[in-house]
């Protein structure tokens, strides 16, 4: 293809867009809406996942032992635990450490009155899980060990987090799929209108000896440009709005600051930027290519 032909084709693509202003606008608006929702959902999911992940890492099962259990036996059990797949980390907390931590958390300066460790015999393992959903089977296992006196677990947290995670995933995938379908449909309509307006021109082009490629290219370029603009707008909006929203939420719900751990916008855009542009260009290309094929059979 000659450079001059390429420029001509691109000019024609832009011309098409401005010739059917209303429909081009409608297509851009739909893709914008679609990708904006996609972006928002993505940002929310990413942040939630991040929070869930942080929370998951914090979920631990604590195991206490019978008072007469020997240090060697406790160590043996610890080694066994580390080997289990659902366990990511096992931390041994000696009785002294347990008392220190308790003093710090609850007693502060009033702890000075104790000369002996009142928590003698409360040495334990804090077990961190790699997968929260496996917590129940781990607990069952732990309870079957005869030396184990008591197992503390945070049942509610674990179940809620697991459920929430997959629910958000399903809903977002569903919404995005529906929106993509709507976008392709609209682009296809825009291009159909463009083809009908230009049908006579296309007939003449074909009589003169235009190749299929030459006839099709301006429409495909039109679709791609609409897709690109439709992707750029929501990306811009999300980029500028994201930090404001995060600040707002943190100020408004300052009690939750420790729980709400937001990702920086750059991390979100690492994936969102290429994916959004890809989807925009993709639906623009597919929508126009398929439509031209169907309506022209050039």
């Amino acid at each position: 293809m000659r450079i001059s032909t390429l420029f001509y084709t691109i000019r024609q693509g832009f011309r098409n867009i401005f010739r059917n202003k209303m429909y081009s606008l409608a297509s851009v608006a739909t893709i914008t809406a679609c990708l904006f929702l996609f972006g928002v959902i993505y940002a929310i999911v990413m942040n939630l996942q991040n929070m869930v992940h942080t929370a998951e890492e914090g979920v631990s099962v604590t195991v206490f032992f019978q008072e007469d259990t020997s240090e060697e036996r406790i160590k043996e059990i610890g080694d066994l635990l580390v080997k289990r797949v659902e366990v990511s980390k096992v931390v041994y907390v000696s009785a002294d450490e347990a008392w220190e931590s308790f003093k710090e958390d609850y007693l502060g300066e009033y702890a000075d009155g104790f000369t002996e460790n009142p928590l003698e015999g409360s040495q334990n393992y804090e077990i961190y899980l790699s997968d929260v959903s496996m917590q129940n089977s781990l607990v069952t296992y732990l309870q079957s060990i005869p030396e184990v006196r008591k197992v503390n677990q945070s049942q509610v947290t674990a179940d809620t987090l697991t459920g929430l995670n997959s629910l958000i995933g399903y809903i977002s995938v569903g919404i995005v799929v529906i929106l993509l379908g709507v976008s392709i449909f609209l682009i296809s309509n825009t291009v159909t209108i463009g083809i009908n307006v230009r049908r006579e021109e296309i007939t003449i082009m074909k009589y003169i000896g235009a190749t299929d490629f030459f006839v099709r290219s301006p429409f495909v370029i039109e679709g791609i440009i609409i897709g690109l603009v439709g992707a750029a707008i929501p990306l811009g909006i999300i980029y500028f709005v994201y930090n404001n929203v995060v600040d707002y939420v943190l100020n408004r719900f300052s009690i939750l600051t420790s729980l709400l751990d937001f990702l920086p916008v750059s991390v979100i855009f690492d994936t969102l930027l290429p994916v959004s542009l890809g989807i925009g260009v993709g639906i623009g290309f597919i929508g126009s290519f398929v439509t031209v094929r169907k309506h022209l059979r050039v």
Binding site: M1, R2, S4, T5, Y8, I204, M205, I208, G209, A210, F214
Partner: peptide, 9 residues
């Protein structure tokens, strides 16, 4: 237009 279609320089 006719020349563009046949890609005349």
């Amino acid at each position: 237009f006719a020349q563009r279609i046949v890609q005349t320089p």
